[in-house]
Write a protein that binds this DNA or RNA. Structure first.
Length: 615
DNA sequence: CGTTTTTGACCCGCGC
DNA sequence: GCGCGGGTCAAAAACG
């Protein structure tokens, strides 16, 4: 009888809270904004120093550092210039000003001046600048200098200064130009170097992936055997989020719709019975199952069947759609509450005893919007497993944004991985290890299950060593000391990181979601789909994702928000491997706090996903 | 009084 | 074809 309110409220666990509270304020406040602004904008907005740091972090290892250095040099020069002559100063100031604009990050600003400069100057460079953000940055900076220089010259000429000054200025300009040219050339070289490094990096990653796959195949075995039909380069496909999105639907709406469909009702897939309202007509053979109700408003009956969607379809699109419908994101966290406080309003519409599990499974539906397809089923008392399906079809409150973002991102990740590669397992591990190398155990992807599912296990604590392995990624973003991230919090963060990374990736790809928390945060997917389709190289994706994780301030905020919401009721506890879920549960049973309060008696260990041995 | 939760029944798909 | 299990509906009850 305790109403669902419990889910909404954030309960702080004494233990967990300790660390998180510090973050809370910041997180909650900042997160929304963060989301709103595109990643690039952030960079631009941030001070030069920050941006530099960020950038350095973002980019792959050695490559990115170059640009930064260049900038620094320039800045120093400027400072010096100021001191000197009175006459020069004005010019210099201009230069310095200009130079400041040169800041690589500036290009993200959409600065009008820059735009103008760019147009004048070096279309070539710009054009040459591949989609790759880094390259663009580099080029831009150079361009600005060049352009500015010329502009300054004209300005000087116009000026009333004496001949001496004029000459001096000209000579200086000439010097500067020469320097600019030199830098330009250097920039090009660096660019080439970057390209090489990137290519090498990608190649290595491919190799790594291949190796991982081999390992994975051994471990997880071949749950997925059947799926491998399409083969292609797994890694590559995997990375291609765009592909997934693209397939999902060209339009934003479409994506959301399709997604929702999938998620929609119970299982997206099922549908058979229902209306065929939408009819997917078409196409894709499997669609039938999917019930595409694009509007998911009616809860209807779709009941479901899972299996249909087998990924064999030859068409990538088909696969994608099918997968999308089925995709699920499970979040496991220790919580005394019956539900996780993720900022959304959930209404319980059903409960059922799961086979083999002593505890009932509860079904919730998002009540924030009539048609919201997102649903979750909570299980377990101590370990609360929340499975999200579909995307919200309405604006989300800030508090809910983090989780939604995470889940949607994770879902996309999953989809992109399972779909493209066709080989679920590989991707799963790949993601877990590549994206979350430090916590492979924290993120589990189950392609074998009827529904591809990404399980984010917040109940686990990554080993310190693991965390240390990627200090950059985690530490950099956080304003607060990494210490806070330790243990439980770290565990909580990982999932978010995973999701956010993907999320950012999509952004970087060019899309920017409605950051405003707009109605469909998720809706952005569709947009991203469109644009993403254009981009995407494995390398880019990986690099971007990795960099984004570390660099994007928003990410930090998002993590904090997510943690706050997630951990509100979470308990810290022992390290449990996913496999141990049941064991953990049993232990937890003693707690039983939740049970008493709620008739729901949620509880139990069983996880819907195949990954977890149910019983 | 309105909203939410509870709970039994029903629907549907899948496996045998 | 039957049984099982997952998922949902909807009336009744409980809660604020």
């Amino acid at each position: 009888m305790a109403k669902g309110s419990g889910g909404l409220s954030i309960d702080s666990d004494p233990i967990a809270t300790g660390g998180f509270f510090l973050h809370k304020p910041t997180v909650l406040t900042s997160f929304p904004e963060e989301n709103i602004n595109p990643k690039w904008k952030h960079l631009a907005a941030t001070s030069a120093t920050q941006s530099m740091d960020v950038k350095a972090t973002r980019s792959p290892p050695s490559t990115f550092q170059f640009p930064v250095k260049l900038i620094n040099t320039n800045e120093h020069d400027h400072d010096h210039d100021h001191d000197p002559d009175s006459s020069l100063p004005s010019d210099n100031r201009r230069r310095s000003t200009v130079i400041d604009e040169m800041d690589f990050f500036a290009d993200k600003k959409h600065d009008v001046d820059r735009m103008t400069i760019i147009n004048n100057g070096t279309d070539d460079l710009k054009d040459s600048g591949s989609p790759d953000g880094l390259e663009l940055n580099l080029n831009t900076g150079l361009n600005l200098l060049t352009t500015n220089t010329s502009s300054e010259q004209s300005t000087v000429d116009d000026g009333v200064s004496s001949n001496m000054e004029d000459k001096r200025a000209k000579s200086e300009l000439a010097v500067l130009r020469a320097e600019v040219e030199r830098m330009k050339e250097e920039n090009l070289r660096l660019k080439d170097m970057l390209t090489h490094v990137t290519s090498n990096y990608n190649a290595l990653q491919m190799d790594l992936i291949t190796l991982l796959q081999g390992q994975n195949s051994h471990h997880k075995d071949e749950q997925h055997d059947g799926k491998n039909k399409d083969d292609g380069i797994v890694p590559r496909q995997f990375m291609d989020l765009g592909l997934v999105a693209a397939t999902g639907g060209g339009d934003t709406e479409d994506l959301s719709l399709s997604t929702s469909e999938g998620g929609r009702r119970r299982d997206p897939t099922r549908s058979s019975g229902n209306n065929a309202e939408n009819n997917n007509e078409d196409g894709t053979g499997e669609q039938d199952k999917k019930g595409t109700d694009q509007r998911e408003e009616s809860p209807d009956q779709g009941r479901g069947s899972h299996k249909d969607a087998r990924f064999n379809s030859t068409k990538s699109v088909d696969q994608t759609e099918a997968t999308i419908r089925k995709a699920r994101v499970s979040v496991r966290a220790r919580s005394e509450d019956a539900t996780i406080s993720d900022g959304c309003q959930w209404r319980k519409y059903g409960q059922k005893m799961a086979k083999g599990n002593p505890c009932p499974r509860a079904y919730y539906r998002c009540t924030m919007a009539a048609g919201c397809p997102v649903q979750r089923c909570a299980e377990d008392r101590t370990i609360l497993t929340t499975t999200y399906e579909g995307n919200h079809s309405h604006p989300l409150p800030p508090a809910a944004t983090a989780m939604a973002s995470t889940t949607s991102s994770a879902a996309r990740m999953l989809l992109s991985g399972s779909m493209s590669s066709t080989d679920g397992p590989m991707n799963s591990d790949f993601l877990a290890r590549t994206i979350l190398p430090c916590s492979s155990s924290l993120a589990t992807i189950s392609a074998s299950s009827p529904f591809p599912t990404v399980t984010l296990d917040l109940t686990q604590n990554p080993s310190p060593l693991q965390l240390l392995k990627q200090p950059i990624q985690f530490q950099v973003p956080f304003p607060n000391p990494p210490q806070n991230l330790a243990t439980a919090s770290a565990a909580a963060l990982l999932p978010q990181i995973l999701g956010q990374a993907l999320h950012n990736q999509s952004k970087s790809s060019g899309l920017q979601m409605s950051q405003d928390m707009q109605p469909n945060r998720l809706g952005h997917q569709s947009q991203s789909a469109l644009q993403q389709g254009q981009q995407n190289s494995l390398a880019d994706s990986l690099t971007t994702a990795t960099a984004a994780i570390a660099a994007d301030p928003n990410f930090t905020a998002a993590l904090a928000a997510a943690i706050t919401s997630i951990i509100g009721g979470a308990h810290q506890n022992n390290i449990n491997s996913i496999n141990n879920v049941q064991t953990t549960t049993s232990n937890n049973n003693s707690n039983g706090n939740i049970t008493t309060g709620n008739n729901n008696s949620y509880g139990h260990n069983k996880i819907t996903n195949s990954s977890f041995p149910s019983d």
